[in-house]
Write a protein that binds this DNA or RNA. Structure first.
Lengths: 237, 237
DNA sequence: CGAGAAACGAGAGCAGTGCTCTTGACATTC
DNA sequence: GAATGTCAAGAGCACTGCTCTCGTTTCTCG
């Protein structure tokens, strides 16, 4: 992953670390974050538990590694979908949201790990924030491209308090895109909405109410784009 | 809570059960669901751990009791807010969402327990689904009242696949309200969006981006209502 | 090249967990 | 009043995260 391992010990260390992560990932996928046990990982590795602590400082640190992996995976999926230019802006948006959902459905425990309840007392280390932003960056880039292409109506200036407007402007700047605050607000609304729907779907709050989750999500994703592109309650004639 | 306890033993049992729940709630509020330990509850109760098992079958069952409590608490808060008729439909909607958020902010661990990652392998017992629906029922009733009062534009018929439309119709029937499928879809969009925003706020995904969470939420809640009442991208002139 | 330093795996151990079983004391009921 | 059921206590099992020590292997540097 980084430099070529030189010494035999360095190679062994890299291999061991990779094995730990690989087995931990499979345990996460099967039993969820709650069921991830360092001792079980060590057992599967054919090694005594204390040996694992030579490579991973604590269970929390191992979880952090998995969190970073998960953020990178969903971020990459979203980036690939967003980069696909086929169709108009709406198609790109729906495709990007769909890629996020596809990842979440394929890796529900990973989704729960990063977007579900945070472990109490777990402070996100600095190395997680950058991977975490990848997926949102992909989404906002779709919006920014659509704005540049004139595919988004600004609508009437919204009544947004200054403190909120400043935050929206700071977000826009952080993502280095050109967008009016109104559109940033709508994009954020649609984006958190996407994750709200996903959480409700994956965590069972829609159980019994939805037959075809794929179709349902697609309908909602199109609505979100309409919200971004035309605004909520845009200009009732 | 139910019948008046007659015998001394029945009274003692009721008191003990209530004490267990009370202490468990305080532990949940302080340490989160992960940190809820039957043994710790027993210790605080001045009783040996096995004694607690006379009243609660397992840790999962205790969590279920807390889940039901949490659903009831947020449901009641939402109902009270929705019942307050001051202002128009938009005011009622924003007030109801605000009540949910106020509860969530005041009891973040309870929120995480019910709307965060579900415990893997935890199948929601039947007694949780009814309390879970209370809060959504409160929200949908606000929408239904607004529709009846003519405060909602239907907009152009949306292009919704039959399978999704059937689900929406079934949801409408389940909540025993009169609403077109289009409006049910928009209400659900707004509702899951509300929880998406809440989860992102409470789980730290907006950390560093938002200064005044109260103001931010209020702006978003108004937008959600506009979405319900006017539709996404309603009739661009 | 070879000695000292660093890294390593194994194992024992500590404190904590959920949960089960037995035992003797108490309350309830017939 | 005796039989029945309920109760709290305690020991015990299997598991967890994590620490420490102890020989062994590997690296590094003189």
């Amino acid at each position: 992953m980084a430099d070529a391992p030189t010494t035999k010990r360095a190679r062994a260390r890299a291999a061991m670390t990779a094995d730990i992560k690989r087995i931990a990932r499979s345990h996460l996928a099967e039993h969820g974050a709650d069921g991830l046990s360092l001792r079980a990982v060590a057992r599967d590795l054919g090694v005594v538990s204390s040996a694992v602590y030579r490579y991973v400082a604590s269970r929390d640190e191992l979880l952090t590694l998995l969190i970073i992996d998960a953020y990178d995976a969903v971020g990459e999926a979203a980036e690939r979908a967003a980069a696909d230019g086929r169709g108009g802006a709406e198609a790109r948006w729906v495709r990007t949201c769909g890629a996020v959902r596809a990842w979440a459905v394929a890796h529900p425990h990973d989704y729960a790990l990063v977007y579900g309840s945070p472990v109490p007392g777990y402070a996100a280390p600095a190395d997680t924030v950058d991977p975490a932003l990848r997926v949102t960056r992909a989404a906002i880039s779709v919006v920014a491209a659509a704005w540049e292409a004139g595919e988004i109506d600004l609508g009437a200036p919204a009544d947004i308090p200054t403190v909120v407007r400043d935050d929206l402007e700071a977000m826009r700047a952080a993502f280095a895109v050109e967008l009016p605050a109104e559109v940033v607000a709508r994009a954020l609304l649609a984006w958190t909405g996407t994750f709200g729907h996903l959480s409700w779907e994956l965590f069972g709050h829609l159980h019994g109410g939805v037959t075809d989750y794929d179709a349902f999500f697609e309908v909602q994703a199109h609505s979100w784009w309409q919200l971004i592109a035309r605004g909520p309650g845009a200009a009732p004639c």
